[in-house]
Amino acid sequence: MDITGSVALVTGANRGIGRGFVEHLLERGAAKVYATARRPELVDVPGVEVLPLDITDPASVAAAAAAAPDVTLLVNNAGISTSGSLVTGDLASARSAMDTHLWGTLEMVRAFAPVIEHNGGGAIVNVLSALSWFAAPGAGGYAAAKAAEWNMTNSVRSELASRGITVQGLHLGAADTDMMAEYDGPKTAPTEVARLALDGVERDAAEVLVDDWSRLVKASLAGDPVDFAAQLG
């Protein structure tokens, strides 16, 4: 699909990668951009239509779909950062990660697939992570949720292909966002993440790997996971 003239809805649009998507969509000539957030008052990008949205609340998702009946491009970016041990930590944290990244994203896909199909087809982008493919110490709940979201993305891609909707899985290591402020390593600018993803939309790419880290981690899947974990120290 062509980004120019599209009608996009971005979740988690008040900061970070979501805000990067909103800004880049406007630069590329999207006809309309719905910028959504749990706290819509924090969205401050001019030229967008702001909607309240909590992707873990089915009623909120249904309301957003009703308020945005012209969407042709859905960017599922909203997420949370969780940490702790899966074995000894608080299970509520891991459940929250799964509720957000898997079930919340799937709720959005289910609500907006009929909208996009009705508008002649389009695309969905699910913002995933290199952590879809490995588990870093202390990030087991987040990694498990992203792994589940990755395979869900693969599943809905095959289901929606016949309905004129492409589904992209977007993977990256680290972006230069508030969430990754403490990370001391290479980080990709949010607008660059958005550019690569939207380039992928225009060529119907099923998967976009943003950086060297995501490409390295995916390549490691052919090997022994214990060996890869040992490289992480």
Score class of each variant (00 low, 15 high):
185 G>R: 06
45 V>M: 04
169 G>R: 02
160 L>D: 07
42 L>K: 15
117 E>S: 09
179 M>F: 12
26 L>F: 07
53 L>V: 05
213 W>D: 10
233 G>F: 04
155 S>M: 11
109 V>L: 11
201 V>N: 05
167 V>S: 05
182 E>F: 13
158 S>C: 09
60 S>I: 04
78 A>V: 09
108 M>R: 01
142 Y>H: 06
130 A>Q: 11
183 Y>T: 08
184 D>Q: 15
48 V>S: 08
226 V>T: 15
161 A>I: 06
29 G>W: 14
96 S>G: 15
178 D>E: 15
118 H>N: 09
67 A>V: 05
108 M>C: 04
122 G>Y: 04
79 G>K: 01
111 A>T: 00
48 V>F: 06
48 V>G: 04
175 A>Q: 01
215 R>V: 10
151 N>W: 13
208 V>Y: 03
229 A>G: 08
30 A>C: 12
40 P>N: 01
212 D>G: 11
93 S>C: 00
229 A>R: 12
59 A>M: 12
6 S>H: 01
225 P>H: 04
44 D>G: 00
90 D>N: 14
233 G>E: 11
190 P>D: 04
133 W>R: 10
157 R>M: 05
100 T>Y: 07
213 W>A: 11
204 D>Q: 13
180 M>S: 15
217 V>L: 01
228 F>P: 01
65 A>E: 02
60 S>M: 07
67 A>N: 00
215 R>F: 05
131 L>V: 13
153 T>K: 01
172 L>Y: 10
156 V>K: 00
85 S>F: 05
153 T>L: 02
145 A>D: 07
22 V>Y: 01
111 A>N: 00
59 A>V: 13
142 Y>V: 04
96 S>W: 06
92 A>T: 15
102 L>Y: 14
95 R>N: 03
124 I>S: 00
215 R>K: 15
200 G>S: 10
118 H>T: 14
196 L>D: 00
78 A>F: 03
164 G>M: 03
81 S>W: 09
10 V>D: 03
44 D>C: 00
137 P>F: 08
110 R>V: 13
210 V>Q: 08
138 G>P: 07
8 A>T: 10
56 T>L: 01
216 L>I: 12
165 I>W: 04
3 I>F: 10
118 H>V: 07
225 P>G: 03
48 V>R: 06
46 P>I: 12
197 A>H: 06
106 L>I: 05
55 I>L: 15
142 Y>F: 10
131 L>A: 12
175 A>F: 07
40 P>F: 03
171 H>E: 13
14 N>T: 08
223 G>R: 09
230 A>S: 08
231 Q>N: 10
117 E>M: 03
191 T>F: 04
220 S>T: 06
75 V>D: 01
219 A>Q: 14
129 S>A: 07
205 A>L: 04
202 E>I: 08
89 G>H: 09
24 H>E: 15
